[in-house]
Amino acid sequence: MPKITQGAFSFLPDLTDDQIAAQIQYALDQGWAVSLEFTDDPHPRNTYWDMWGTPMFDLRDAAGVMGELKACRTANPDSYIRLSAFDSTRGWETVRLAFMVHRPTQEAKFRLERTEGPGRVQHYSVVRA
């Protein structure tokens, strides 16, 4: 059964909640704002995931994020959930860490589709199987 691999740690076995909490704590200790996103369309070209609430600023402890993650999992059990940590430091101003924290039991499948263009040029696209 192939796994969707996106973001950090995705080639590893799924992180346990304790490991996720430790990663969140690291991000918070760096002063990054953590946010949660979910989607039922994990296509690599889909950059528009739905946000679960607003990004969480001013948090000090991972327990707050874990509570939101739990709520998001309950509400969207069949979605992919991604956690990202945004660094607002001048010069960075970007996501410093992003990884998946939840995947559905039935993973999405993709296959390669070939289309022949003019002059036998091959066009490739990744489509949902």
């Binding site: 609430g53 969480m56 001013d58 948090l59 000090r60 402890d61 991972a62 327990a63 707050g64 994020v65 509570g67 939101e68």
Partner: peptide, 14 residues
């Protein structure tokens, strides 16, 4: 509810 939860999240660990 969101307001209270927001405050609670900020206070977690403290």
């Amino acid at each position: 509810a969101p307001k209270t939860k927001e405050v609670l999240k900020r206070a977690m660990g403290g």
